[in-house]
Computed example of a mutant assay.
Amino acid sequence: MSSAPWYLNSKKPSLKHQRNWKNDLNSKSTCYDRGAKIFQAEKYRKKACQNCGAMSHDVKSCMYRPRKVGAKFTNMYIAPDEKVESLKLDYAAKRDRWNGYDTSDYHRVVERYEARENARKKYLKEQKIKKLEENDGDDDGLRVDEAKVDESRQMDFAKVEKRFRTSGGGSTGTVRNLHIREDTAKYLLNLDVNSAHYDPKTRSMREDPLPSSKYRSE
C-alpha cells in the first residue's frame, strides 16, 4: 500500500516500501515511437558510438554493420540519434514484440511480392511464346497469337469463385471455369426419369445419357 493508516505504528515493519503499481504504469495504448530520429550530427561527438557515431547507444549495443574504420576516426557517415523513451509498462507490454509497429509499412511488403509475382508470370509467358515460335507450321502460328492474348480478355472462359476443400478448412480463391458457355450440361441431354443417374453431390454421371445416339457426348 502507498500510505499506512494513522492507527498503525510506523516504527514497525510494514508494506510502505511497496509502490502502487496500478497508478504508476502507463496505459495499454502507450507504445514506443519505433525508428524515430531526433538529431543528425555532421561530425563525431564525445561519448558517442565509435562505430556509427550516434549518441543514443554505445559500440557494444550498436545494431549497424561493423565498419572497418569507425566513425570516431573517419568522422564521416554519422548515424542520426535515435529517440530513446523510458516508459513504465506492465509485464505483457514489456514483452510485446509489435509495440510501436506501423501497420502502414506493410504495403511495401505486398508491393514487393506482387512485383515478383508479375515478373514471374511475364517471364513464363515469354518463354512459352518463344518455344512456340521456334516450331514451324500454321497451327503453331495460331497458338502464338492465342498465347499473346491477355487471359483476362478471353470471352470463352470466365473466372468464378470456388471454395476448395483442404485439411485446414476451406479457402475461397479465384479459379478458371473450363466449361464453355455454349456447351450443354451432360445431365440435360436426356430429361427422361429412367435415363442415366446423375449424382448431384459428386457431380458425376457414370452412364451415357444417350446410349442409342450415334454421336455420343464426350
Rank of each mutant, 00 (worst) to 15 (best):
L189E: 03
V109E: 05
R108N: 02
R45V: 06
A196F: 00
R116G: 11
E42S: 15
G170Y: 06
Q50L: 13
R112V: 01
M205Q: 13
F73Q: 11
K162I: 09
H107K: 01
L8D: 12
D24Q: 10
R176F: 06
I180P: 02
S204Y: 14
K37S: 04
N99E: 04
L188P: 04
D156M: 04
D105E: 10
H197S: 10
K148E: 13
F157G: 00
K162P: 06
A93T: 14
K47H: 06
K37Y: 09
D145G: 10
T202D: 12
M205C: 07
P211C: 10
Q40D: 09
G137Y: 01
V193N: 14
V175E: 08
R19S: 13
H107G: 04
S171H: 06
N20F: 15
T174L: 01
K214H: 06
V110Y: 07
V144G: 03
K37F: 06
P200L: 04
K68P: 03
A147G: 08
T74I: 13
R181D: 01
D90H: 04
K12F: 14
D33E: 11
R206P: 12
G100S: 00
P5L: 04
K11N: 13
N26Q: 12
R65H: 11
L15W: 14
D139R: 14
K37A: 02
M205I: 05
L87C: 08
G137Q: 05
M155C: 08
K22M: 14
E126M: 08
K159Q: 13
S29F: 08
D145N: 07
K16Q: 13
D139Y: 11
F164G: 13
V109Q: 03
E82H: 09
Y32G: 08
K121E: 02
S212I: 13
S56L: 02
S27I: 11
R181L: 00
K46Q: 01
K159L: 07
A115V: 08
R143L: 01
K201P: 08
K16N: 12
F157C: 00
Q127G: 13
D199H: 05
D140Q: 11
R165S: 15
K162S: 12
F157T: 01
P209E: 00
D33W: 02
T172Y: 00
S171Y: 09
K122H: 07
S195N: 07
E114H: 05
E133I: 01
E133C: 02
E42K: 15
W98T: 07
Y123E: 14
A147F: 05
K83D: 02
G173K: 03
A54V: 00
S27R: 14
Y101V: 06
E134I: 07
N23G: 14
Y198L: 00
K162L: 11
K37W: 05
A79S: 08
R19A: 13
Y44S: 08
G53Y: 06
Y187G: 07
K22A: 15
K186S: 10
P209A: 02
S29P: 04
S213N: 05
W6V: 14
V160Q: 12
